[in-house]
């Protein structure tokens, strides 16, 4: 289903993050006329196209959404390698997370770094990527009272997600460690190391 988001926006319902990512990739490859923003979310892709012929764009999006809904042929992990994030696991909440999950801190580290995660979408602040695919054992709640400032490079978890703080900001996620890897740099092109669909692996430094 495609919903109008005002006169210039169309919100395509994909129903899943994987379909959102495939539709995002198809749209970026094709760039239908006047498209300014393509914003994938967990179950949607927002397309903003001021001045576009909305009927034609809607038709094209219907076709592309149908193509994106088909399971991909071949190995979708082929091609670009995963981004490896070296982590010093000395976060302020590591012990608490271990206590809450019934694991040792070493086991928390092993489970956090043991799987490949995928960037679901970005939001909250520029370059802040919600990483999906976290080991379900590590799904913990946010802090009841968020910290007023979390340092840049903090590696954290909350709910089903992990993240690397791209800049210092307030935040309520549980801090497991920190990385020197710069995930956000306005002088770089693209400015973000993470994009929707980027595969990520944490590695104890």
């Amino acid at each position: 289903m495609i919903r109008a988001a005002g006169e210039h926006g169309l919100l395509v319902e994909t129903g899943s993050l994987e379909v959102s990512h495939r539709l995002d990739a198809l749209l970026r490859a094709e760039r239908p006329g006047s498209v300014v923003e393509i914003v994938p979310g967990p179950e949607t892709v927002l397309v903003v196209a001021p001045g576009a012929d909305q009927l034609r764009l809607r038709e094209r999006l219907t076709d592309l959404a149908r193509a994106a809904a088909e399971p991909p042929s071949g190995d979708r992990t082929a091609g670009t390698p995963a981004v490896v994030v070296p982590v010093v696991y000395d976060g302020a909440d590591l012990a608490d997370v271990a206590g809450e999950t019934g694991l040792t801190p070493e086991e928390v580290v092993a489970r956090h770094s043991g799987r490949e995660l995928v960037v679901g979408w970005l939001g909250f602040s520029p370059g802040f990527a919600y990483l999906t695919g976290l080991d379900p054992v590590l799904h913990v709640s946010r802090l009841a009272t968020p910290r007023t400032s979390v340092p840049v490079g903090s590696v954290a978890i909350a709910g089903p997600h992990s993240a690397v703080y791209p800049s210092a900001s307030p935040g309520g996620w549980r801090l497991l460690g920190r990385t020197d890897l710069r995930v956000w740099d306005v002088r770089a092109d693209p400015p973000s190391l993470f994009r929707p669909g980027t595969r990520v692996r944490f590695e104890p430094a």
Partner: peptide, 11 residues
């Protein structure tokens, strides 16, 4: 600042 919404950047 168009074109960066998918990276979390406001317009």
């Amino acid at each position: 600042r168009p074109g960066y919404a998918h990276l979390g950047v406001p317009y």
